[in-house]
Design a protein around this nucleic acid. Structure first.
Lengths: 182, 182
DNA sequence: CCACGGTGAGACAATCGTGTCTCACGTGAG
DNA sequence: CTCACGTGAGACACGATTGTCTCACCGTGG
């Protein structure tokens, strides 16, 4: 009978990604449990969001691990990263939108992720694979932004889900301009 | 003594971009007026946000006009567009984040903007200037996303304000990969 | 069989944001 | 000068959400 905490978190993530202003009651009903039980597992809305953040961080770190960011060309590492991070894109989009209103502390877990991702861009720039006039910090931010944008566009039906990785990676790496064949 | 409605809207935009959950009272104090007066000019929070949306649409349309999207190469048109839209980036970022929770109607004013912007991408693809494997709808969405991301990154101090246009345009057009000299 | 732990349902007060109202004040126009 | 207008300050009630509590129910394990 014990509630599956992880399943609750996932349904909450799915709901809050679509409706960031959803009530605790709506979150509970979306998870198929009562508000009382939801409150037994998560002391309040803040606790729920923080748990969601932990889940997002964990999924991102797992995706980074699976992507083997240090192996091979930086461009290929980025392709693997986006492919691995796609399942968490919705959750990430929610947290990315939510983080705009924090400004206070609590960024430590994200700082580690930022550093790991930025490292790929630094490596690509040092190897001459990436251009150097776009700062790694901005490229990292842009990666988040494109992932979130594509997640929203996918939910809105403006982008086909199967094109997710291609759209994000190709724009991030190659840009909109047609590339001349070398 | 009459309150400058436009100045109120601009300070509200600046505040809400940083703090989307700001109270009507905070909005009023940020504008240097009382909550009563704010409520005399905008019937409620919805009315305020809708007025903000109208302002954002108007500024975007003005930017599109100034950018002369139909003139010259599509890439140059996009550069002009981003440059002209930069002053409204903060407001746009707020509205872009806010729109994620609409889902209902009221998209008509934005649809016109989407169409105008997407037309540039279509033109670039037809002229062979842009690659064709990224859909105009996605490129339009990505433009919004990158503008919003860069606005947030700028406010957070992760990107220098003077680099705004360069960072957005160069990533959108050229991508992160180093381009071989033709 | 029975006790126990976890759950659902509902009641409850407290809090917060909101919308509305009143009243006093200051300024500018007539 | 006087009056009308717009404003600031504050009080007030309402609704929504939240956090807490109680009670009844049910499955499982002893």
């Amino acid at each position: 009978m014990a509630v599956d905490r992880d399943q609750v978190l996932r349904s909450a993530a799915a709901l809050l990604t679509r409706t960031p202003t959803a009530t605790m009651d709506e979150v509970a009903r979306a998870a198929g449990i009562s508000r009382a039980t939801l409150h037994r597992h998560f002391a309040g809305r803040d606790a729920l969001v923080r748990a969601l953040e932990s889940l997002g961080v964990a999924e991102c770190e797992a995706a980074l691990d699976r992507a083997r960011l240090d192996d091979g060309p930086a461009g290929d590492a980025l392709r693997r990263l986006v492919r691995e991070i796609e399942p968490a894109a919705g959750l990430l989009a929610f947290l990315y939108g939510e983080n705009q209103l924090w400004e206070d502390g609590g960024d430590e877990p994200w700082a580690r992720l930022d550093t790991r991702i930025a490292t790929v861009f630094v490596r690509g720039q040092q190897s001459g694979e990436f251009r150097i006039d776009l700062s790694p910090a901005w490229l990292t931010e842009a990666l988040y932004g494109l992932v979130a944008s594509c997640a929203w566009a996918t939910q809105a039906g403006r982008v086909a889900p199967k094109d997710f990785t291609h759209m994000v990676v190709e724009l991030l790496l190659g840009g909109a301009l047609r590339r001349e064949e070398p």
